[in-house]
Each structure stands twice: as C-alpha cells, then as structure tokens.
Amino acid sequence: MTWLVALSAILHREALRFVGQRSRFVAALVRPLVWLFVFAAGFRAALGLSITPPYQTYITYEIYIIPGLCGMILLFNGMQSSLSLVYDREMGSMRLLLTAPLPRWWLLFSKLLAGTLVSILQCAAFLAVAAVWGIRLPLVGYLVVIPALLLSGLMLGALGLMLSSFIRQLENFAGVMNFVIFPMFFLSSALYPLWRMAEASPRLRDLCTLNPFTHAVELIRFALYGQANLMAALWVTVALAVFSAAALRGYDPARGVQNRKG
C-alpha cells in the first residue's frame, strides 16, 4: 500500500508539473507537426517507398513517418523528464525523494512511469491532429499501439535516467541531450526505411539496426496496424533492462560516496 501511495504521489506531482507547463505540451506537438506538414510535403516526391510490412499497399510519405514522429515525442519527452531530474537534484528535492523508506528502484520506476504516461498523452494528441489532417490509421491500431508506446517510452525514459545519473550539472546535461537525441533520431527508420539507408551505405544501415530507437519505431509502426513485431519488442525490452540497470547503479548512494572519497 505504501508503494502505491508513493507511486500516486509521484504521478500527481508530474501531472501538476505538466498542467502548469502548457508551453511544454504545445512544444511537444509543434515539433512533430512541423515535420509532418512541412518536411513530409517537401520529401514526398523525392523518397519513394516500396510495399514492406506492415504495409500491404503503397503509402504516402506522411503515413510512413507517423510512427517515427511518435517516437520523436517519446524521445524528446524522455530527455526532458530526465532534465527535470537533474534540476530536482540541484534543488535538493531529488535527494528527499530517494531518502524515502522504499526501494530505490521503485521510486525511479515511478518517476519513469509518470514521464512515460505524459508522453503517451502527447502522442495521442498528435495522432488526433494527424487524423483531423486526413492521415487515418486502422481503428484497432489506436488501441494496440498503447502498449508499444508504453514499452518504448519506458526504454527511452530509462536512457535519459541513465544519462542524468552520471551528469551532475544542468548545463552539461542539456548539451549531452543534443549528442544523444539527433544521432538516435536520424540513424533510425523514423524518416526512411532501412533498405533505403542500405542503398547509400551498408555501414549506416548496420548502425541503424543497432540503434534501439529504430526498434522502438518499428514496434510502434507494426502496432499502429494491429500487428506485433516480436523481434523489435525483444530489442526494446533488452535496452530497457540495460538502461535501467545502469541508472540504478548511477543513483546508488554508495557509489556517490566512493566518488567523493576518490
């Protein structure tokens, strides 16, 4: 019961922060919408797409990048939530949270889950705007995609949590975000299929294949069409476990004491 109380308190705090920062919600929508309305329109004729799963017919470029833009929302919001962790640590509130008489992994998971749920709400708003614009997906996909968004959001949030555990200053974390977000986004299948990347460079295609964000995008892509991509789900789950383990180690107080002694 105490664990649930802590979880609800963290969720409530994150919800209040989200409601109080409406500009954050608007910015999270403007970014993918600009890519959808401007970038996709400019590259529609330049980037031809073949019939590849889960698509059973030719599609427009706007439809192709929808899963990648959902991944973009999860990625940016995961890093933004981790940025707030660094701020909370500088202000001292993070220290108070971790001193609660509960397992540290549960407190960090609660924080991670709260940020992911906010990301899912932003993805839902984005998909609604896209549907109004005329980009409609199978109705079953809007339900099946929720677990895919949850798993992918947890993985990307855990990545940000891992980075925040090793970066001590707010200014440094903001700089590191750019070196993580943009390579992960562009070296993925968010904007172009992997076979198109292989035509340009097989090595770049291999890097895209190793990128966990690629598998998160493909997991979302198949889920939007009511299909399961088990291989992508496995890769995302493995990445979630690795990032979470590294974050727990980074937030280990014994490790911090050893660092100060060193």
Rank of each mutant, 00 (worst) to 15 (best):
L137N: 04
A124D: 15
V176G: 06
L159A: 01
F166A: 05
R136E: 07
I146F: 10
V144M: 14
Y192H: 03
V129D: 06
L187H: 07
K111L: 09
M184Q: 14
I181C: 10
K111E: 07
V144A: 14
G157D: 02
A128E: 12
L154S: 12
M162K: 03
P183Q: 03
P147L: 05
G134K: 14
G134A: 12
A128D: 08
V129S: 10
N178W: 15
L137H: 07
G157I: 00
G175P: 06
L161Y: 03
G141A: 08
Y192E: 00
G134T: 11
L150I: 12
Q122D: 14
I120E: 05
V180A: 03
Y142G: 13
G134Q: 12
P183H: 06
M184I: 06
F166T: 00
G160C: 05
W195F: 08
M184A: 10
M155L: 09
S165I: 04
A190G: 01
I120T: 11
A124Y: 12
F173N: 00
L163D: 00
L117C: 12
L191H: 06
L156P: 04
M184N: 04
F126K: 08
S164R: 14
T116G: 03
Y142L: 15
M155V: 08
F186Q: 02
A174W: 14
F173P: 00
R168F: 11
L154G: 11
F166K: 03
A130H: 09
Q122L: 15
S152A: 15
F182V: 13
L194T: 06
N178V: 14
L194Q: 07
G160P: 08
V144Y: 11
F173I: 15
L156D: 02
V180S: 02
M177Y: 05
L121R: 05
L156I: 06
L117Q: 07
